[in-house]
Design a protein around this nucleic acid. Structure first.
Lengths: 237, 237
DNA sequence: TAGTGGTCTAGACCACAAT
DNA sequence: TTGTGGTCTAGACCACTAC
């Protein structure tokens, strides 16, 4: 068999069986006592192996019941081939939001092509489906563009959607860029997304809208990583 | 302060500092002994906290030296806005590959719109930069399409790239779809990508090429999740 | 009440790095 | 030699679940 420490061998055994579907979601793992006997190690080694799997988000411990394989039923984020100016109907989600004037942090300033400290409108969103949070987002718009207009506050405008709102003030969005990365969730994200304390990683999409190569809005979209699949479609020319 | 168990409080403290950049890459964490005293807990609790951070891929333990914050220098995978038929020059990477006739597994068959067990050409790739593996991929093509042609074996053809090879046998690729997910690495992937035993998660892109809505090739692209950023660009119409 | 996992302690031995 | 992290043991107490 494999060498390496016992706890890794145990974790490796289960990880591959979980990932290849041999052990489907909601399956109960053998009890810690049984694993001690099966592998001939002490309880703490078994727990260490299970802790690894928990931290990877593959299993969930339920006190008094057992350790269960985490069920994965991925939501799909369809990325539009073309970002149209008439956005498609939204899925049945609730939305919480709040807008505040703010000064651009350096990272945001760079994305918006403005100076750090320049005034921006920051809007924070949280999307829920069936009462469960499924996405959070933070958007920044330079007040140099929207300040004083009818669409200054994104969610209190007559029209919604970045392209449509910009269009309403004569700014024609012609390009959108997305940068997607994957990382562990911060404590704030765990709280807002109701993620467990272990095995929580998120997918972060940094999205920027441009009008003639000038950024007019940038946004951090944060998704629970284990719950989503991201689809992109391209046309070959 | 936060409540919850000590090991989580410790892990939470460091996680947020690492993610917001307060603690940059290659920083050495305080020694376990020092953390014991700082938090007033036993060594095993400190180790548990560090184990959580290791499993999340945020820190790396170096025996005899200390625990260090993992450095992140992300490679960028630029996704072409339009998949052109003359692919852009490849980055300076080496490539290993092997092609074999195979029978389609059910999951692959479904992606290719063929029956399970139908003959396919399976090609496995591994890409290396500066000797380090940075990506692995597995491609499947129905032999019903390429069998007996000059491009049957992808890497031994005069032209490379799916669109160009298909073009050479009169199949005109007009659409490409990608589905991106994030998950822990399997043992096989850890081996092929030289990933450490802990904190290893990958980004999987399932990509399919279509010609008139008929799948002509499908491919699993596997990237080390912590090392990559994925960019997508869209034109607003 | 019995079985389960969750947290924590005290201590041992090992491998490796720096000096 | 000293300090570091890596692995493992034996055992305690708690919280929760099921019966």
């Amino acid at each position: 068999m494999a060498d390496g420490p016992f706890y890794q061998r145990i974790a490796d055994d289960f990880r591959d069986q979980i990932l290849d579907g041999t052990l489907p979601g909601e399956t109960k793992l053998p009890s810690e006592k049984e694993l001690e006997q099966r592998y001939g190690v002490s309880r703490i080694v078994v727990k260490h192996a299970l802790d690894v799997l928990k931290a990877e988000g593959l299993v969930i411990g339920r006190q008094g019941k057992g350790v269960y394989i985490r069920k994965i039923d991925r939501l799909v984020r369809e990325s539009p081939t073309e970002y149209s100016r008439t956005p498609p109907p939204r899925p049945p989600t609730e939305r919480e939001y709040a807008s505040n004037r703010d000064e651009a942090r350096p990272a945001v300033a760079e994305r918006l092509g403005i100076a750090p400290g320049d005034p921006v409108m920051r809007t924070q969103y949280r999307y829920l489906a069936a009462g469960e949070p499924i996405q959070i987002a933070t958007s920044w718009e330079p007040l140099a563009i929207t300040g004083g207009t009818a669409v200054e506050r994104p969610e209190e405008s007559a029209v919604t959607g970045v392209t449509a709102r910009m269009e309403a003030i004569g700014v024609r969005v012609d390009r959108v860029g997305e940068a997607l990365t994957c990382r562990p969730a911060t404590n704030r994200e765990k709280g807002l997304l109701s993620l467990g304390s272990t095995g929580a990683y998120v997918v972060l999409i940094e999205r920027t809208h441009y009008a003639q190569d000038q950024p007019v809005e940038t946004c951090d979209l944060v998704y629970p990583g284990h719950r989503y699949e991201f689809r992109y479609a391209f046309t070959v020319t």
